[in-house]
Amino acid sequence: MNKHIPILDSCTLTDSNQNKILIDHFAAYLKKNSNMVFPHRHSFYHIVVFTQGSGYHTIDFEKFDVTPGQIYFMAPGQIHTWHFSDDVDGYVINFDKGYYESFLLLTDSIDNFSFYNGIAQDGVIQLHSELLQQVTTLSESLYQQVNHTQPVYWDLTKTILLHLLMLVEQSHSKTTTGELSSSYALIKKFQRLIETDFASSRLPSEYASQLNVTPNHLNIVCKEHLGHSAGEEIRNRIVLEAKRLLVVNTLSITEIAYSLAFNDNSYFSKFFKKHTGMTPEEFRKKRAW
């Protein structure tokens, strides 16, 4: 298998990267990038709105069937590939963190959106008809501003993008959680901490301390909202990163173990097999996209 999965930058996908955003009709985008069906990851944030077509999209080893009205959000670093029908269409938006934050001047504000937490399932949302209409209208407005309006008012493009993101977040939060409870907010903070600290912090007590709650309370909230313990949530993130590293490049198993703070290659292999049913070598050899 191909063990090296490229990281695509914004400049890979657009003629000019000075403004750090690309938006296109999805059918046209696929035609221009017809060779990109191989597994790859991005250094930028990625949005796809599906208005028609079918097929499937694989994100971080999770397979999602495509239906009209879906919107996909992908954070930098996630691995994906796809197989779409010939009539698939919609919109694609790629932008980097600097483009977004240069407008809001809020560090890491984009990572506060629930769909950009790095969890594949949270980034795939089915929009109801009214919201889909609003999202497609905003997407077309952004497309026209970026590609056909001269001069381009870049602050306006950022405003449109922010409107789209906040509109989906507002609607999705109400649909999935009603009023955002303190326990739900705690889970999201916990997951954001895991995203940055999973390689160095393995114990729920370390995260509980940062969140100003007891380990027991954190565990109860995780079981309530996620169906498993706080420790399992941490381990799941370690396993995901191990899978990414195993298919992304030619690092040895020992190098991957050390990069994930395992002091012993044998312990890493046992840990990985316990959670996946395969050894790292078997996963690397058998992984099929």
Rank of each mutant, 00 (worst) to 15 (best):
residue 3 K to I: 04
residue 6 P to W: 03
residue 6 P to R: 06
residue 7 I to D: 04
residue 7 I to S: 12
residue 12 T to A: 14
residue 12 T to N: 15
residue 13 L to M: 15
residue 16 S to E: 09
residue 21 I to A: 05
residue 23 I to Y: 05
residue 26 F to P: 02
residue 28 A to G: 08
residue 35 N to R: 13
residue 36 M to D: 09
residue 38 F to W: 06
residue 43 S to M: 06
residue 43 S to F: 04
residue 43 S to E: 09
residue 43 S to V: 04
residue 44 F to D: 07
residue 44 F to I: 06
residue 45 Y to I: 05
residue 46 H to I: 02
residue 47 I to M: 15
residue 50 F to G: 07
residue 52 Q to F: 05
residue 63 K to Y: 04
residue 65 D to L: 13
residue 67 T to I: 12
residue 69 G to L: 11
residue 71 I to W: 02
residue 73 F to M: 07
residue 74 M to A: 14
residue 81 T to E: 08
residue 81 T to C: 15
residue 86 D to L: 11
residue 86 D to S: 15
residue 87 D to C: 07
residue 90 G to A: 09
residue 93 I to K: 03
residue 96 D to E: 12
residue 98 G to A: 11
residue 99 Y to V: 04
residue 101 E to I: 09
residue 102 S to Y: 06
residue 103 F to H: 14
residue 114 S to L: 03
residue 115 F to P: 02
residue 117 N to P: 01
residue 117 N to W: 02
residue 120 A to E: 00
residue 127 L to I: 04
residue 133 Q to S: 13
residue 134 Q to H: 10
residue 135 V to T: 10
residue 137 T to Q: 14
residue 145 Q to Y: 07
residue 155 D to E: 12
residue 157 T to C: 15
residue 157 T to R: 05
residue 163 H to S: 15
residue 167 L to C: 08
residue 178 G to H: 02
residue 180 L to N: 06
residue 180 L to V: 13
residue 182 S to V: 03
residue 186 L to P: 00
residue 187 I to T: 00
residue 192 R to M: 00
residue 194 I to E: 02
residue 196 T to N: 05
residue 196 T to H: 07
residue 200 S to Q: 13
residue 201 S to Y: 04
residue 202 R to T: 05
residue 204 P to R: 02
residue 204 P to N: 07
residue 207 Y to I: 00
residue 208 A to F: 01
residue 210 Q to M: 11
residue 219 N to W: 00
residue 220 I to V: 13
residue 225 H to G: 01
residue 227 G to C: 01
residue 231 G to W: 00
residue 232 E to Q: 11
residue 233 E to L: 01
residue 233 E to A: 14
residue 236 N to V: 00
residue 236 N to Q: 14
residue 237 R to Q: 08
residue 239 V to N: 00
residue 245 L to S: 08
residue 246 L to W: 07
residue 248 V to Q: 14
residue 248 V to W: 03
residue 249 N to G: 15
residue 252 S to W: 07
residue 253 I to E: 09
residue 253 I to T: 14
residue 254 T to I: 10
residue 255 E to Q: 15
residue 255 E to K: 14
residue 258 Y to H: 15
residue 258 Y to M: 13
residue 261 A to Y: 09
residue 265 N to K: 15
residue 265 N to P: 02
residue 269 S to G: 14
residue 269 S to D: 07
residue 272 F to R: 05
residue 275 H to D: 11
residue 276 T to G: 07
residue 277 G to T: 08
residue 277 G to F: 06
residue 280 P to W: 06
residue 280 P to Y: 06
residue 284 R to S: 12
residue 285 K to Q: 14
residue 288 A to C: 10
residue 289 W to D: 13
